[in-house]
Amino acid sequence: MTTVDPTPRTYPFSAPDRLRLDPFYAELRKQEPVSRVQLPYGEAAWLATRHSDVRTVFADPRFSRAATVGKDEPRARPNPQQTGILTMDPPEHTRLRKLVAKAFTARRVEQLRPRAQRIADDLSRAMRRSGPPLDLVEEFALPLPITVICELLGVPYEDRTDFRVWSDAFLSTSKLSEQQVNDYIGQMRAYMAGLVEQRRERPADDLLSALIQARDEQDKLSETELLDLSVGLLVAGHETTATQIPNFVYVLLTHPEELEWLRADPDRIPAAVEELMRFVPLGVNAAFPRYALEDVELGGVLIRAGEPVLASLASANRDESVFEEADRLDLRRDSNSHIGFGHGPHHCLGAQLARMELQVALGTLLRDFENLRLAVEEPDVSWKTGMLVRGPRDLPVTW
Rank of each mutant, 00 (worst) to 15 (best):
S321K: 12
L259Q: 04
H255V: 08
G283P: 00
V296S: 07
E274S: 09
P270L: 10
E297S: 10
P266C: 10
V301H: 04
R263E: 07
D267M: 09
A292S: 12
M277C: 07
H238T: 02
V249Y: 03
D319Q: 07
D330S: 10
E275M: 08
E260P: 00
V249I: 15
A242F: 12
L310K: 06
H238S: 03
A236I: 15
G283F: 09
T254K: 11
A242R: 04
D267C: 08
R332Y: 08
L276P: 09
E275N: 04
L302A: 13
V309R: 01
N285C: 09
L302S: 13
N247P: 02
G306C: 03
Y250E: 03
P266Y: 12
V235Q: 00
E257V: 12
V309L: 00
R318M: 11
S312L: 12
A314P: 11
G306A: 07
P270W: 13
P256F: 11
E239V: 12
F288M: 14
E239R: 01
T240Y: 05
R290W: 06
G300K: 07
E320I: 05
P246N: 10
N285S: 14
D265T: 01
A311D: 06
L259H: 05
Q244M: 15
L234C: 05
S321M: 09
D327H: 14
L282T: 12
L234A: 06
A286M: 03
T241W: 14
S312H: 02
F248L: 07
V273P: 01
N317M: 06
L234F: 09
V235G: 00
A236M: 08
D327I: 11
A264V: 03
V309T: 08
G237E: 00
L310S: 03
L233F: 09
T243G: 08
V280I: 13
E257T: 10
A287N: 13
I245N: 01
V301G: 05
E260G: 00
E239P: 07
A316H: 06
V231M: 02
F288V: 12
G299W: 13
R268G: 06
H255W: 07
L276G: 11
A314Q: 02
L276Q: 04
E260C: 06
L234T: 09
R332D: 07
E320Q: 15
A286R: 08
E275A: 05
M277S: 03
H238N: 08
E257D: 15
V231I: 10
D330I: 12
G232C: 02
S315W: 03
D295A: 15
D330R: 15
D319A: 02
A286F: 05
P246G: 07
R290E: 09
L331P: 05
E297C: 01
T243S: 15
L282A: 10
D267R: 15
G300N: 04
F323A: 03
V284F: 06
A242K: 02
N247L: 13
